[in-house]
Write a protein that binds this DNA or RNA. Structure first.
Lengths: 253, 253
DNA sequence: CCAAAGATGTTTGTATGCAACCCCGTCGCT
DNA sequence: AGCGACGGGGTTGCATACAAACATCTTTGG
């Protein structure tokens, strides 16, 4: 859904959309602050007409909230919301896997996904900075998984939620500093990919679904780990939009 | 999501949105036909600016498809897509029920839903034309169910899919002619509502989820019944948007 | 001194004019 | 005769001017 622009659109609304999203995610707007059109116009260098289209797109995307008197604010996400979004992504991916299993999938497609996953396996057996490549492969795997179900609606819903900051399939990957902690997790994830493919191949719908769900919950673990290091967290794109649990408790629960 | 307008907006974009949606659902546009802005402007009596906002809203809603060169067409739905959408609504409602069960729900809310469902029970024990009232009660029950989970994302996704023609909780109710056939179905549905509430009360997440899913599948049955009477089908709002299975086969499968 | 009405600035909503684009047919040149 | 280019109609994209809603602060009258 209006994820970016089609093609390499040079249209003003795309320009505004991209710029705005980036500025929002990098925390250049305070959480409850009212975003009026005129300031944005001069900030982004587009006129009001395309700007408004970009704004409704971002509202649809869930990054902006329309406030009563008109105007927008950047949406603030609680940790619970993020966890819910991840759980929901798991539900959707599980459903995709189940439907794929029930309906049967061509060997070509399964083969392609297997190869993607094999490449992931080779990658995490390597030493070195493979994060970028891993993210790419992982996203491709998940995107294809969703398409396996062959349902437009499912795809739409998934795109809607996976575009949310922190809810995407590779959103919470630990970056450099703590890579040691994330290494075993990636292995588990790769294994789950394989299990899903196997379940789909053998048309075991229930198994495919539950593995799909559990797989997404890996992100919950990563979320927990990340929350232990608030500074790192805040620096990640979109980090400033997250309302961290208040100073009290929750740090040693 | 941009379901109707907030408040009783007299704004032009709302006017355009409502009028357009109604005209689309009543089949006043051919399926693949290109909808250009200028004709719509004089048809709806609003200028291009609010019209375009209404168009993107309908695109987000899934009723319109943007076509490559610009402009829109009304979206055409296959029977399979409708079935998928219903299945997905079941997945979401099942998830809502499961989350509600897992997280626990206040008695007040459960009580309220029980009363709604009791009223449905009394209603279907009555003779007479209760369709309108049933639809109202049923929609309220489902809306509350979704809210029980307490997840904004889930609610958003559900609204998105329940707004689709034929995918809403009461969308495929058989109208007057065949009421006799739908009567026992309503009884089953009411019972499933009760089971869901019971499961939630007893915090039986898995049960709540599976009942929620199965409950939505009632709509699949109704869909089947409706497809036996194409004329009736075509007359329902949005009926003309559905691409019926080609003349061959499928009538006696 | 307080209250109410009005003026003023700021905001969003709407209309419209202009420019760029695309499809397509036709005309001219080779 | 074929191929290419030019131009016309129609369409969308964009910018801007204007109107209406809203808020605020001031000013004036009691």
């Amino acid at each position: 859904m209006t994820p970016a622009g089609n093609r390499s659109d040079k249209t003003q609304v795309t320009r505004a959309l991209l710029a705005l999203r980036e500025q929002i995610l990098s925390g250049q707007f305070a959480a409850g602050e009212r975003m009026s059109e005129l300031p944005l116009v001069e900030r982004l260098g587009v006129s009001r007409t395309p700007l408004r289209l970009a704004l409704v797109a971002l509202e649809h995307e869930g990054l902006l909230d329309r406030l009563p008197g008109g105007g927008y604010t950047v949406r603030e996400f609680t940790v619970t919301e993020i966890a819910d979004a991840i759980e929901l992504r798991g539900v959707l991916e599980g459903t995709a896997a189940r439907l794929a299993a029930e309906r049967g999938i061509g060997r070509r497609e399964l083969r392609a996904m297997s190869e993607l996953n094999d490449e992931i396996l080779r990658l995490i057996n390597t030493d070195g900075d493979y994060v970028t490549r891993y993210v790419d492969l992982n996203e491709r795997f998940h995107a294809r998984l969703i398409k396996l179900a062959g349902s437009v609606q499912l795809e739409r819903m998934w795109s809607g939620i996976a575009a949310l900051p922190f809810a995407g399939p590779s959103a919470l990957l630990l970056t450099e500093p703590k890579l040691s902690e994330s290494w075993p997790i990636l292995r588990v994830a790769q294994r789950q990919h394989a299990s899903m493919l196997d379940a789909i191949t053998q048309r075991q719908g229930a198994r495919a679904e539950s593995v799909g769900r559990e797989h997404a919950r890996i992100a919950l673990t990563n979320l927990d780990l990340l929350l232990r290091e608030r500074e790192t967290f805040q620096r990640m794109p979109g980090g400033s939009l997250v309302l961290l649990p208040g100073g009290a408790a929750d740090d040693h629960s």
